[in-house]
Design a binder for these strands. Structure first.
Lengths: 234, 234
DNA sequence: TAGTGGTCTAGACCACAAA
DNA sequence: TTGTGGTCTAGACCACTAT
């Protein structure tokens, strides 16, 4: 995909401060000329950067660089796993539990699979720079994710699924709410029972529309902030 | 915009159950033929529906209808104000405070305006179906939003800004985290001090890139859930 | 193999901002 | 008035799914 690569290139240039002076990207015409691509590619690349919150185009005026307040925040609009998202930090993982179970009715419904489907059930504590950040309760459909062992579970599951298994992840349904920290989770996080906790539930799908993963993650409310870019149309 | 209208039409048809049987939308070719538009329009319309989480296209296979778990949730990816978002419910608003102040340094920085700029400061309690859902602390740049009175503040500010003032809202930076409910907010929400609360901070921009609104909203954790669609690319 | 959505091109006109 | 991004068209080829 030319436009995805172009987006990466421009992103890199922005990080290197190439456009810091101008506060803008070059015009579409200049970008077309510079990278010898059609306007379609340029506009798609800019769309990607816009969705990521790096720029905003203004009709008649230019493509402005945005400085958002996302520093230190986890992204709600893109999901690539904690390991990649916090690549600048030391992320370690304690696998508290890893077993192959069979989906009973409720789980089968959530995971849109048959009752009795083999499913990996994993509990992990994610520790960032020495501080417990989150506890994940997560399920993987074993018909799709054939093999998970302690070693893979202690690393980046997303990377494993993409590069080792060659599967293409597409999108995630995400529900977010707040509740009091239950006892078991409080222990994993080394915090007090009844404290506030942010809870994020994800349903994750492949490009072919198959759901392969469901999860419920409790975040340490002192350590976790989230960022999102909301569109307002019409 | 033809494709925005087309998206609305298809959305309407989906609501009316036109494609319920097939579980899919018609193919791009059929949609082009049916609505006499180019492929560009069809694909843009489908993109809108995809971003809203209503469909997902699968290469080689079709455009599938999605049933997400968003029922009863507030959207994080689109921001159109509580009044519109909860159009099915009875939303009432108590204006606790409304005054015109002048931005001191900290506020001026956040709102990207000069120190001393006149700014409306508003506190509102939003009540949904009789239950206090949220308390908003919000600031409007008076250079842009010329006039706010008690009456407008007790209704939909977004609708007022769009239809009365004719301004085009574009996007919002959104930060979300969790904390213990402070005393004053607990009173407005009629809940206990120290309970969990979801806090959402928005910076809202016009299409010309001007920031006109900053807000901090405390949600009743028993009543508020949020939904978002996360993309996973590369 | 036929049909689907994904990528890409070239070119036109429109709406808005800045000079 | 000029230059910017926004919308729209027509047409080509690619990648993937179904059969």
């Amino acid at each position: 995909m030319k436009y995805q690569e172009l987006a990466n290139i421009i992103r890199k240039e922005m990080e290197d401060g190439v456009y810091k002076e101008a506060l803008k990207l070059p015009t579409e015409n200049v970008l077309m000329e510079k990278y010898k691509v059609s306007r379609y590619c340029v506009r798609n690349a800019v769309n990607i950067l816009t969705k990521l919150g790096h720029v905003y185009p203004v009709q008649g005026s230019g493509i402005f660089i945005r400085k958002s307040r996302r520093e230190g925040c986890l992204s709600l609009g893109s999901a690539k796993g904690l390991t990649e998202e916090l690549a600048d930090h030391a992320v370690t993982t304690d696998v508290e539990r890893l077993e192959l179970i069979h989906a009973e009715q409720e789980l089968a419904e959530r995971m849109k699979c048959e009752i009795g489907t083999p499913v990996y059930f994993i509990i992990r504590t994610r520790i960032v720079d020495g501080v417990p950040l989150a506890v994940e309760y997560t399920y993987y459909n074993q018909d799709i994710i054939k093999k998970v062992d302690e070693k893979t579970a202690s690393g980046s599951m997303f990377r494993y699924i993409k590069t080792e298994l060659g599967l293409n992840i597409s999108f995630a349904d995400r529900i977010l709410y707040c509740d009091k920290l239950p006892e078991k989770v409080a222990q994993y996080l080394a915090r007090e029972v009844g404290e506030p906790a942010i809870i994020v539930e994800d349903d994750v799908y492949l490009v072919n529309g198959q759901m392969f993963n469901a999860s419920k993650v409790y975040y340490n409310y002192k350590a976790a902030k989230f960022f999102n870019l909301a569109e307002i149309k019409e």
